[in-house]
């Protein structure tokens, strides 16, 4: 394995986000959006061969399907996964999705539905809750947020609870202790999880050139330092080669504003 010298922040995040699926065994892995999808593909091609991926539409494929126009690439199909079977998979628990909420709060609750205090007349109608309520109480979910700020990681509660979090007073009677399972949250600044005391948010990895204080200043709720807090490891040349193959049109360059390099000088 050769450590890469030249890589973008998006590539660093893809490698870090792929770790979400480590140890998952065999299940349906769904990365929604370019970086999560590349992360799932990278995980499958390296350390998580049991992940089942789709073509982004309705078929399981033997290998991750590259993003965008496929040219001569012909996917090889191994199964059928129309939406009805996606829901069956969701409800069975044998799925781990990585999604991009617009807001998250200290409880790990997430919102993609609408902004503003009045749901009957939202300031901004967004996507609706889509599959988030069911996903969040059925299987593990990880998140990728491209712009870590107090607007995304809010001080109070998210405007619309699309994904259920660890605010246990909202949980139903006799819920399983693991009613909600959150994997990792990868951002343009760090990787954190909700595995601190009482499901507190704790920073696990800081991207090169980013300080804990900088992350805390950009977060609306208190963060903890994980005992093993470290710098996000750089991609290897082998990982970068896989990412380039899965993203031949360089869609990843358009995900984070200005496509910054992976190693930033401290502000």
């Amino acid at each position: 394995m050769t450590i890469a010298q030249d890589f973008t922040l998006a590539e660093l995040i893809i490698v870090a986000a792929a770790e979400a699926w480590r140890g998952d065994g065999e299940l349906l892995a769904t990365g929604i959006g370019p970086l999560p999808r590349l992360a799932a593909g990278l995980a499958k091609q390296t350390f998580a061969p049991g992940l089942q991926l789709t073509d982004g539409e309705a078929y399981l494929t033997s290998e991750p399907v590259p993003l965008g126009p496929r040219g001569d690439h012909r996917p090889k199909y191994t199964g059928w996964m129309p939406y009805s079977r996606v829901f069956d998979s969701v409800w069975s628990g044998r799925r781990h999705a990585m999604v991009t909420p617009v807001q998250m709060d200290r409880w790990g609750q997430a919102n993609i539905s609408a902004l503003g205090p009045d749901f009957r007349k939202p300031k901004v109608q967004m996507l609706g809750v889509r599959g988030f309520p069911g996903n969040s109480v059925s299987h593990k979910n990880s998140m990728f947020l491209p712009s870590h700020s107090k607007r995304t990681f809010v001080e109070g509660e998210v405007d619309v609870v699309a994904s259920v979090g660890f605010r246990k007073e909202t949980w139903p009677a006799n819920a399983r202790p693991d009613f909600v399972k959150i994997g990792i949250v990868a951002t343009d600044l760090c990787v954190f999880d909700f595995n601190g005391p009482e499901h507190g948010a704790q920073v696990r990895l800081l991207h090169p050139g980013v300080t804990f204080e900088q992350v805390q200043a950009a977060t609306g709720f208190p963060l903890l330092r994980a005992a093993d807090l470290a710098e996000t490891p750089p991609p290897s040349e082998e990982q970068l080669a896989i990412i380039r193959r899965l993203d031949p049109h360089n869609v990843r360059a358009r995900v984070i504003k200005d496509n910054p390099p992976g190693i930033r000088t401290a502000a």
């Binding site: 409800w91 539905s113 809750v129 988030f132 309520p133 069911g134 109480v137 059925s138 139903p172």
Partner: peptide, 21 residues
């Protein structure tokens, strides 16, 4: 009968929805 929706805004935004034990 389902877990889906519990704990989420689906319940608060649709107050006519009821639960069963």
């Amino acid at each position: 009968a389902t877990h889906v929706g519990l704990g989420s805004a689906v319940m608060t935004n649709n107050p006519e929805f009821k639960t069963v034990v």
